[in-house]
Design a protein around this nucleic acid. Sequence first.
DNA 1: GCTGAAAGGAGTTTTCT
DNA 2: AGAAAACTCCTTTCAGC
Lengths: 158, 158
Amino acid sequence: MAHHELDELDEKILRMIVDNARIPFLEVARACGVSGAAIHQRVQKLTGLGVVKGSEFLLDAEKIGYETCAYVGIFLTSPSTFEYVVKELEKIPEVVECYYTTGQYDVLIKVFAKNNKDLLRIIHTELQPLGLSRTETLICFKEGFRKKLPIQFIEKEA
Amino acid sequence: MAHHELDELDEKILRMIVDNARIPFLEVARACGVSGAAIHQRVQKLTGLGVVKGSEFLLDAEKIGYETCAYVGIFLTSPSTFEYVVKELEKIPEVVECYYTTGQYDVLIKVFAKNNKDLLRIIHTELQPLGLSRTETLICFKEGFRKKLPIQFIEKEA
DNA sequence: GCTGAAAGGAGTTTTCT
DNA sequence: AGAAAACTCCTTTCAGC
């Protein structure tokens, strides 16, 4: 039903490029049995559709000086401050992700800090002044794993 | 103090490639005033050091069929089940991140699902059977933002 | 929408400094 | 460590189907 504009070739291309942004498109082309130009056009189409949002190199946070990672659940004083708070959170370099959530918190953010002391500084001198009702900090002392979603949007007809 | 092996050139290279994995290294070379071979060697060095962990294309989760994103906080029945639970969580395709945390929960995971109903299925038929004490679900109904950490590990001497 | 070819660039290796 | 050069391979475009 969804994604009438995407076919098996798109799926195969995405699977090949998603974990290695620097793979030569010609290699993808050979694996898919089409020309390099076709891959080039498909990736452009996928980018135009917004399916592909860009590419990036993955860095090890610890190795660039960020030893502490935490999620901070935020309770706002009033729902009307949502937009303001998020706009201000975005300005804090150490806050790398921000979600509006249902459930426990109003907003959930992911924060990197140099160390635990630095995390405290961020919470006390960067977050609290935004006029939050309360925060709850979940320090990630170990990353269990991180992986990619399966790419499979083609309907398998029975 | 840290990262004696990294210098300003490494920093500049990382800043240039981190948000665009397909940038030509020759373009980086010209911007840095060095040869393409130098960039090639530096990126290899950074990869060897584990600073660079790979590259990836970013896909729009909604556009590949995952409309619901949630964090699930997990309470274990006993600390001794940590490793088993994480190993089993890793086998669930929709669970894309997993952290050992201090604070509210024992484990925090990030889950993508096709829709809210699918999320419930995952929680009930995939997570609960692992023998968890309890779970708390935070549905992300909107992503506020997502960005990269600042890259700056060179000590600025006063 | 794809192919194939052509032209211009880029990636990678080697050699030298 | 990096430069320069050489070689290989890739990207991008376009005519043609």
